[in-house]
Design a protein around this nucleic acid. Sequence first.
DNA 1: CTGATATATTTCGACATAGAAACATAATAG
DNA 2: CTATTATGTTTCTATGTCGAAATATATCAG
Lengths: 151, 151
Amino acid sequence: MPTHHQGSADEVRALDAFIKLVRGTNSTLAELLPPLQRDFGLTESQLGVLEALHHLGPLAQGQICQKILKSGSNVTTVVDNLERDGLVRRVRDADDRRVQVVHLTEKGRELIERAFPAHAARVTALMATLSSEEQAELGRLCLKLGRAVAG
Amino acid sequence: MPTHHQGSADEVRALDAFIKLVRGTNSTLAELLPPLQRDFGLTESQLGVLEALHHLGPLAQGQICQKILKSGSNVTTVVDNLERDGLVRRVRDADDRRVQVVHLTEKGRELIERAFPAHAARVTALMATLSSEEQAELGRLCLKLGRAVAG
DNA sequence: CTGATATATTTCGACATAGAAACATAATAG
DNA sequence: CTATTATGTTTCTATGTCGAAATATATCAG
């Protein structure tokens, strides 16, 4: 990725790796998200919320925030849309009435049980571009990078 | 990333690598974009458009689409906002009047010449979490993954 | 030249996303 | 017990993002 900017060798290398990281991620998502939308009517965030609820059981919205690493206002919006579609319902917590506990509905459970395996199969097929050693190395490098920031 | 889903070893490995890829990318962007907004008032897409114009000179919107890998309607929106802020201007092409050629303004040029080096320095500092060999390997793996999809 | 087709951009509608401010409810200090 | 502070959620405003439909202009067939 040549740039106009006059950078050191360190900068050129870092920018090159960074751009490939962002573009590679975007390319994979561009491949995975349209089928998710077409086959199940779900966005990435909606899938994340449903999967978390399916895996962990009912969660407060604040807990969902932490799981999917998005802002509180965003979780409100995503849960609004899931609730409108009948996939989850909000239950006001009796002990702490500030809290909305989000539950999967039967419809939501049925959907995530179909959608997740299909999505996982697509991810697997796509990642098969890389050998298992390469996949492990990619994961290791991304985790290291992410931890340097967030952890 | 343990999941409820009962998957093969291949699936578990692929999903693990994929989730780390997406989260690592999101974490780095979450670190880089707020300073870009606070210091220069720019979003990622706005930076991309200004950098492309600075590097390549005036471009038709369709060419910008290809450079930043976004949809045409999105480029319209981003250029709208840049134009409103006085950073670019649209010039109707005389030969093909369907085409809008986007030019940097003096204000836009001055801004990108300050913003890009600052951004590049932040990217470099963040990527320094990884050794230069690791950065190169990360870039290689992401490029391979991206090409399997888009190429 | 005219009608059909192709291309560049815009508009529209829906969703994601963040941050700031508002709001409701807890929890704590005094 | 009341005032203050903290916390969980929502609302509001601004952007990005896409796809589909609309619009403007070009191009091409005949």
